[in-house]
C-alpha cells in the first residue's frame, strides 16, 4: 500500500489528537488568567504562580512527594531490574510462572484494591510485630516501590528480549564471572531501559493519589492528596498553575528523551 493515508483517516486521527490536547491546553492558558473565576478571562497574569509558591501546604506536600518519588523510583529500579533480568535470562525455575503473574498483575490492578490490601498488611504487621510503627513516608515508599517495580521489570524485560545474547555469550566464553558479566556487559546495554524505568516510576509515584491515601498516616499528605482535597470542592487557580509547571517540566523531559533516542536510532540505521 502507499505510504500516504486517506483524508478520512487523517481527519479522524486529527480529531483524536485534538481530544487528547484541548483540555491540557485550556488548563495551561487559564493558569495565566488574572480573574479568580477560573472560566472568566480577566487578562494575562502570573498571580497564581506567586500564590502557588506562597502556599505552604502545597509546597510542603510537594517536598514530601518528591522525596517519596525519589526513594521509591530508586528502589523500584533495583528490584525491577532484577525481576526483569530473572524473567528474561534465567532458565525455568520453580515459581517462574508465579513471578510472571506478580509482575504483570500490578500494572492493571485497580488502585483501590492495592491500596486497601497494603494498608491491611501494614496494620496486621504492626499488631503482630510492632513494625511499621504507624504509617507515613515508609509505608508509602514500600507501596510505591511495589507497583513501580512492575513497570521497571516490564521495560527491562522487553529491552533484554530485544538484545541478542551473543555479547553476553562471548564474555562468558572468555571466562567472565556472572557478576562481572552482568556489570560490564548486560548493565550498560540495558541502562537506557533502567533510566526510563526510573523516570516512569518517579512520575507514577509523584502522581499516585489512591494508594497513598490508604497507606499514609495523619500529617503525611502527599501532593496529589492535597490537590485532590482542593479540587474536590471545585476548580482552583493555584492548581492550574501547579499543573502547568508539572506538564511543562514533563514535556521538556519527554521531548528531550525522544530526540536523543531518535538520534541514536538514526545513527544505528546508518551503521547497518
Amino acid at each position: 500500500m502507499k505510504q500516504g493515508s486517506s483524508v478520512a483517516l487523517k481527519v479522524m486521527a486529527g480529531a483524536g489528537f485534538v481530544f487528547l490536547y484541548a483540555p491540557i491546553i485550556a488548563l495551561i492558558v487559564y493558569s495565566f488568567n488574572e480573574s479568580k473565576l477560573v472560566t472568566v478571562w480577566g487578562g494575562w497574569s502570573l498571580k497564581w504562580y506567586v500564590e502557588l509558591f506562597r502556599n505552604e501546604q502545597i509546597m510542603s506536600a510537594a517536598w514530601v512527594s518528591l522525596k517519596i518519588a525519589f526513594i521509591s523510583a530508586t528502589l523500584a529500579s533495583v528490584l525491577g531490574t532484577l525481576a526483569g533480568f530473572v524473567l528474561s535470562r534465567m532458565r525455568k525455575f520453580a515459581g517462574k510462572a508465579m513471578l510472571t503473574g506478580w509482575v504483570t498483575a500490578p500494572l492493571v490492578m485497580p488502585e483501590v484494591i492495592t491500596g486497601l490490601s497494603l494498608l491491611l498488611l501494614f496494620v496486621s504487621l504492626e499488631n503482630m510485630f510492632g513494625w511499621p510503627a504507624g504509617r507515613g513516608v515508609t509505608t508509602i515508599v514500600i507501596a510505591h516501590t511495589t507497583f513501580c517495580l512492575a513497570y521497571v521489570a516490564v521495560v527491562v524485560q522487553s529491552r533484554l528480549a530485544s538484545l541478542d545474547e551473543t555479547l553476553e555469550e562471548a564474555a562468558m566464553d572468555l571466562g567472565a564471572k556472572p557478576i562481572s558479566l552482568f556489570f560490564l556487559i548486560t548493565l550498560p546495554l540495558i541502562a537506557p531501559a533502567i533510566i526510563s524505568g526510573w523516570l516512569l516510576s518517579f512520575t507514577l509515584s509523584l502522581d499516585d493519589l489512591v494508594i497513598a491515601s490508604f497507606v499514609s498516616g495523619p500529617g503525611n499528605s502527599t501532593l496529589p492528596m492535597v490537590i485532590f482535597s482542593k479540587v474536590r470542592l471545585g476548580v482552583t487557580p493555584e492548581v492550574n498553575a501547579l499543573a502547568t509547571l508539572m506538564i511543562v517540566t514533563v514535556s521538556i523531559a519527554v521531548i528531550a528523551a525522544i530526540v536523543i533516542m531518535h538520534r541514536q536510532n538514526r545513527f544505528k540505521d546508518t551503521n547497518k
Binding site: L20, Y21, A22, P23, I24, A26, L27, Y30, V38, T39, L200, T203, L206, D207, L209, P224, I227, F228, V231, G234, V235, V239, N240, L242, A243, M246, I247, V250, S251, A253, V254, I255, I258
Partner: peptide
C-alpha cells in the same frame, strides 16, 4: 506518550474546568 507521562489526576481535573 506525552499525556501518559503527565499527571493522571491533573488530566481529570482539566476536564472539570471544561
Amino acid at each position: 506518550i506525552l499525556p501518559f507521562w503527565t499527571s493522571f489526576l491533573l488530566r481529570v481535573y482539566a476536564w472539570m474546568a471544561l
